[in-house]
Nucleic acid binder design. Structure first.
Lengths: 218, 218
DNA sequence: TCACCCCAGTATACGGTGTAGACCAGTCTA
DNA sequence: TAGACTGGTCTACACCGTATACTGGGGTGA
């Protein structure tokens, strides 16, 4: 089977998304997808050469599911709209997130998303030479945050924070000691995501200002 | 086996790193690690309750390999030292990187690293209530950048940028069109990493300034 | 000296995974 | 009507994480 079939690709991608959505990360197996489609596992290999390839297609579809921004938004709102859209889409299909951070965005849907970010940053007045970098920074942070949050990196691991800190002598962790109770308060990840987003926008604004007003830099 | 043994943990972690380093992350199986140690797979479960727990320990060891910062550094230099240190360690064991972004940092080594960031941000004057968030933002960005860079997300994928853009009608990608040649220039990832780091430090400084000088916000 | 227990490590097995390779029933075409 | 193509099946392989049951040897108390 040199050339891949096209006909049922969308159907398969849908099935994969459905499986990821309601049976979770680890359950996204070729067998599970195949069963959902109503077909033998090996039949999928007529449409995708490997599971990885299927996942890439899933990511493409996922980005296309981000609703397009309503017209007339300011650049901050556009970036917010995109980030929240990505977050909610990712929340529905957490299993494919790692793929998002390790594969180049080559599908048409992905390029469309990148273009929205470019436009927003240009609107913000970020110098042309820095737009691409800032887009990478923005997407890295957004995806990284969502991934960390959903995979549990921001969680407590096997120990809760106080017990964890007790492992080490307090005076060897002056930072933790100074912050004290701040560290034990529960975090609202929605708020944190919003705050990070605001900071990134401020950063873009600062870069824009530094460009039109060079002596203000540093 | 309620309580875990300690004696050979370091040896096992070393073996895991070695396996990941020279056979890739996919080959990092309990069986492979066990073989490296010269023991039966099930013997590992006397030292780690699950594979996940082993991976957490591996992350810890990796962070411990970051050389400690020389004393007397300013907060920007401390953050830089840490970020570059992480980047070079990650370069030695690229396969373990995804683990860094998906497991909580609970080992003593990891906590030490987090503490260094806390101290730097406190030195910078970031308000106590925002230090933890900024640390997460900082680490997410640093790890995310390194991971993206090393896994090829920042690369061109199967198409080079011009060909990729040609897939879509140019007028549907105004951002790409406006940026034009800027997008085709090769990127120096060292420079980009440094620039992102600088921006993050500026962000911290801005938050600190907004705190001591509230009317300057927004 | 002997019996006991503890403990590190082993052996086996279960239910899962991705996927290679051979095969097969229809349908379309020469 | 024979042959090729197409879409799918079936079987099998090598591997995964890990639960359960076991074993051989050293240390200790009687």
């Amino acid at each position: 089977m040199r050339k891949l079939k096209e006909s049922r690709r969308p159907e398969i991608i849908d099935a994969a998304l459905a499986v990821a959505a309601d049976r979770g990360l680890d359950a996204l197996s070729m067998r599970a997808v195949a069963q959902r489609v109503g077909v033998t596992p090996m039949a999928l290999y007529g449409y995708f050469r490997t599971k990885d390839e299927l996942l890439e297609a899933v990511v493409g579809r996922l980005l296309e599911e981000i609703p397009p921004a309503p017209p007339g938004l300011g650049w901050r709102e556009m970036l917010q709209h995109l980030a929240y859209g990505l977050r909610s889409v990712a929340g529905r299909y957490p299993a494919v997130l790692p793929v998002l951070l390790t594969r180049p965005a080559v599908s048409p849907g992905a390029i469309r998303v990148v273009d929205v970010v470019y436009r927003a940053l240009l609107d913000a007045g970020v110098p042309h030479g820095q737009v691409a970098r800032l887009e990478r920074m923005f997407s890295t942070l957004a995806i990284g945050h969502i991934l960390s949050e959903m995979s549990g990196r921001f969680g407590a691991g096997t120990l809760d924070p106080p017990a964890r800190r007790a492992q080490l002598s307090p005076e060897s962790l002056p930072g933790h000691h100074t912050l004290g109770a701040h560290l034990d308060q529960p975090v609202d990840w929605d708020d944190e995501f919003t705050a990070n987003l605001r900071d990134m926008c401020d950063l873009a604004a600062a870069l824009a200002a530094a460009d039109t007003n060079p002596q203000a830099t540093h």
